[in-house]
Design a protein around this nucleic acid. Sequence first.
DNA 1: TGGCGGCTGGCTGTCGACAATCGACTGGCG
DNA 2: CGCCAGTCGATTGTCGACAGCCAGCCGCCA
Lengths: 235, 235
Amino acid sequence: MPDTLLTLSHLQSKSLREHIVDVLHEAILCGDLSPGQPLIETDLAAQLGVSRAPLREAIQILNSEGLVETIPRRGTRVSTLERKDIVELYSLRGVLEALAIRCIIDQSDPCDLRRLEAISERMLRAANQGNLRKVNELDHSFHDTLIAMSGHSLLQTTWNLVALRVRRVMTLRNMRNDDIRLVAYSHLPILDAIRDRDGERATSAIEAHVATGGDLVAEDWEVGAMPAPLQRQES
Amino acid sequence: MPDTLLTLSHLQSKSLREHIVDVLHEAILCGDLSPGQPLIETDLAAQLGVSRAPLREAIQILNSEGLVETIPRRGTRVSTLERKDIVELYSLRGVLEALAIRCIIDQSDPCDLRRLEAISERMLRAANQGNLRKVNELDHSFHDTLIAMSGHSLLQTTWNLVALRVRRVMTLRNMRNDDIRLVAYSHLPILDAIRDRDGERATSAIEAHVATGGDLVAEDWEVGAMPAPLQRQES
DNA sequence: TGGCGGCTGGCTGTCGACAATCGACTGGCG
DNA sequence: CGCCAGTCGATTGTCGACAGCCAGCCGCCA
């Protein structure tokens, strides 16, 4: 039972700091910690049942990831998300995924697209059933898989940073059902182009796909996306 | 005298942690800390005259930047640079700079290219004089300026990570003089294309430029770039 | 009444010390 | 002679405490 071994080795190698990073990731991505909300080290440490040392180390990591912003001697708060950030995020995402696709196509051995195709099929089903949450989940794993298949490790680490922000944006923003279907179906031309090893077409397809998603998300962003006034949240 | 104010606010806002990050950056980029060399917290802290707490926070940052690699409960060492890393670095760099150029061209107001032109001119002079160090320096500021002019803040932060690695690579690798001149002159077509607002041509030019640099650097990388055997450095 | 200066509480930055873990060495056993 | 278990040193992970700084409040003075 390798599962037990994996679990054990996972637990063993997971320092308190990494646990805290995971918890804070979850909290920020799920919106439990809203944009602009201050992070008081003393309170957080007490709440998590740890001391401030590993918490501060975790905060440095989140800071490097751009999920929080620290002003020296003034404190740390969850970073905000303006409309400009969305636009920038999706434009960067576009070129990263385009690079991934070029890497995939350039690989000498004809790559195995079945994983991507399987994800895409499931996504289409979920979209037709209006299962918004599942479509999102599958969309993420589609793009994560795409990056992973590129075999480009620096691209992978860069993508991880971008993907964090994308996930965060998606939880703050729920799309309409017909948009969901639109997004789901726009994966197909990408797969086709990769299958044909047509770099030009694949790049256009992925950029169009990402741009569409970005437009849908950025549209009317200010309206529903400022849940946190820049004031203290606690009474 | 705003300079004084800037200096003061700079000093005031610089925590010990950031000082340590700066020092370690310098040490790694200059090669004082060679790839593979272990970082012993106790020793480093004593050497820097600080305690381990801010040092550990700094190490988390370097870790996020990819300059060091930490194995839980095993320690931290300066990350190594394989040939594959160089290739990946320059391929990512290419698409990032291409994105920057597209942003610059798309800007509504005709951008001010004089800064870039000035840097380029000085670089040509330095190249013709064989001043290798100055060419490198100016090359960095050319590309940094290019990214800054894009006004794309997420691209900027992503670039900062990439630029760190590029600088590191360049210090480990000294080019030949004729190559230097080649690199310096290949900035001109980029400027021309931006001036003409020809996105297609500018993108090709920057990708060619970066690819050339990458090839020159990656060429025979293994030969001179493994200064650190995976053993202790100190006696 | 409005602006300025000192005070205070809370928070961050830093430190030294303890506990837990890993690798290497040594000794014993098959 | 080779392999395994036990031990020890070194290094990391974590903690509680102290010091310094900043913001906001209060009182004083013009």
